[in-house]
């Protein structure tokens, strides 16, 4: 966990159930587990939104908050977290990435790619930059985008958003020599 994430963790307001030790043990009763899983899904999304994280490596994630609660010394097991991510995937709030069978890495969509796509397109329109070619780097790290929610957006998530715009005929991607060189032209 880097320093910005650590500070963000301190400011995050955890729900009351977070200090309830059994929250970190998968409950045997199906109805209880469904409720527990629902609460975990909400927590993952709000925590990742708060710390602006988009990727999760499960085996590493369980070492730190929110999956490790230092105060009450409880850790969520990786296999339980995997079930929670499976649920997020089912809801369309995450996708598994990397080798399929390992299920160790995922993207967390605290905003769906469709929402990012609409947000970016709106911003480009507002700036009168329709029909201009921009680099992906300018979009997420440019001086103009500093206060935008998509500033610093994970490249994989961004690529998904741009792909959506392209399929809607609202953007055209130009692949350069590397991912950073990716250029994009927006249409109204």
């Amino acid at each position: 966990m880097n320093r910005t994430t650590a500070t963000a963790t301190e400011q995050f307001e955890f729900p009351e159930i977070y200090s309830f030790p059994p929250f970190f043990t998968r409950q045997p009763a199906e109805a209880t587990w469904q409720e527990q899983r629902r609460l975990w899904c909400n927590l993952v999304l709000s925590f990742y939104r708060h710390t602006r994280q988009h990727t999760m490596t499960l085996s590493e994630a369980v070492l730190s908050p929110p999956f490790h609660n230092y105060q009450i010394k409880r850790i969520l097991r990786v296999d339980v977290l995997r079930e929670i991510v499976d649920e997020l995937v089912k809801q369309g709030n995450a996708v598994w990435v990397g080798p399929k069978h390992t299920k160790d890495m995922c993207l967390v969509f605290w905003r769906k790619p469709e929402e990012w796509a609409a947000m970016i397109h709106q911003w480009v329109t507002d700036r009168g930059m329709i029909n201009t070619v921009l680099t992906v780097y300018e979009l997420t790290n440019g001086d103009d985008t500093g206060d935008q929610e998509f500033s610093g957006l994970d490249t994989v998530v961004l690529r998904r958003a741009l792909d959506i715009l392209q399929s809607q005929g609202k953007a055209q991607l130009f692949v350069g020599s590397s991912d950073d060189d990716l250029g994009v032209k927006f249409f109204a």
Binding site: F20, P21, P22, F23, F24, T25, Q27, P28, A29, A31, T32, E35, K73, R74, I75
Partner: peptide
């Protein structure tokens, strides 16, 4: 446990049961 009045906590040496 089945009715959800009690939750299990396996995060300690001896399993604990909690009443939410």
């Amino acid at each position: 446990l089945r009715t959800g009045i009690v939750w299990v906590d396996e995060g300690t040496k001896e399993t604990e049961y909690w009443v939410p």
